[in-house]
Write a protein that binds this DNA or RNA. Structure first.
Lengths: 204, 204
DNA sequence: TAATATAATGAACATATGTTCAAAAGTCAA
DNA sequence: TTGACTTTTGAACATATGTTCATTATATTA
């Protein structure tokens, strides 16, 4: 009942393909992945996996392979009970400007406070581990402490920077030597702090 | 941008079919389910759903329909992901002794695929925007593609690195010039790939 | 009403994909 | 080595499935 190397390989590929595509592979795709040139070779292999209880098949159906309970258990189907509850509605201000949808987040990430999310554009905070395309979570507030990473509205553009007050002006400092700091008057009407960054999420 | 009754019907069916079969339906199956007799009628309908951002398609591919993030968000709920702590030697990755807790995650971030989470230790992937203390989400798999960021078990220690196979050894490459790459024999018993990194979360 | 856009049909087509078969190649025990 | 068994190949085949097109029906609007 043991699987040999090639069978294990094939099963691995099928499981992985399913996860990545939400769709089973074809015989030819399996063959290509594990180095078997004829569809019949693959068929043979898969028949073995079926008879050993790792797979099942709907005959004549395209992409008809499916995983058995046994396989799902071994590869640990961890789909758990969904947690019901709403998390962190965006602030109305940003909801209007930048509405991309709602994102659910674990409360351990952002606590109980009101929160909004923003997608990062550009590389200016790279050295703080904030990359282009990342999603930031921020707590809305109109002031900040020295050293906070803030989301600021500057000339109708949201920007993410370190917050460094200096006398009666403010230095918005990037975390990337290729970018220059921005200085604004504290009382400038074109400048406003929207919130303080408290978390980050990235899809890779 | 609203969906009419028939479109909503079709979308519902596709989501349901996917959930029940782990495989997208064919055009003919959709047509039969919603009462459209020609495949082209279904195609028309699905094109509408695609242009409205609910579905996507891999052209010419059998069962090539897939759900967009938007649709997953609407139809999916929060998912719980196990947080893996220290991985004990020999024990399966997701054995209870290895688990530190559960994290709720938006399906947008990790899709429907099986996922585990791991807390990052150290600075070795700094230049990839992966910082000390970050939580990584990974898809469990025992092999990987060149260039993937993987979580690997090396001498009973979980480590995060770029995966670069070179002949019969593997280079585990940090994203930080201060760290040296690690080389391991492909068949080394002390080495094992645990999964591929697909997302990241940071609390600040 | 006419005109225009939207939906759906039916049939033909192209190709993606599973199935089958005979033969070759490899494996393993007697 | 022989012989039985397993595994793979290659090619032909059948069918499942996406694509295209001309046409008709249905709604919407000027």
């Amino acid at each position: 009942m043991e699987l040999n190397h090639k069978q294990k390989n094939a099963l691995d590929f099928i499981v992985r393909y399913l996860r990545e595509h939400d769709r089973p592979p074809t015989l030819r795709e399996v063959g290509k992945a594990i180095g078997v040139s004829s569809t019949n070779g693959v068929r043979y292999l898969i028949d073995a996996l079926i008879s050993k209880g790792y797979l099942s098949r709907s005959p004549s159906l395209s992409r008809g392979i499916s995983l058995t309970d046994k396989t799902m258990r071994q590869h640990g189907s961890l789909r758990m009970v969904p947690l019901v509850g709403r998390v962190a509605a965006g602030s109305p201000l940003l909801a209007e400007e930048n509405l991309e949808g709602q994102i659910a987040v674990d409360p351990t990430l952002i606590g109980r406070s009101e929160t909004f999310a923003l997608r990062v554009k550009g590389e200016s905070m790279r050295d703080a581990g904030i990359m282009d395309g990342d999603i930031l979570f921020a707590r809305p507030q109109s002031s900040a402490q020295k050293g906070d990473i803030v989301i600021a509205l500057l000339d109708n553009e949201a920007t993410v920077k370190y917050f460094r007050p200096e006398g009666n002006r403010i230095c918005l400092q990037p975390a990337n030597p290729k970018f220059a700091p921005i200085f604004v008057e504290k009382k400038s009407p074109d400048f406003r702090i929207l919130g303080k960054v408290i978390g980050l999420m990235r899809k890779m």
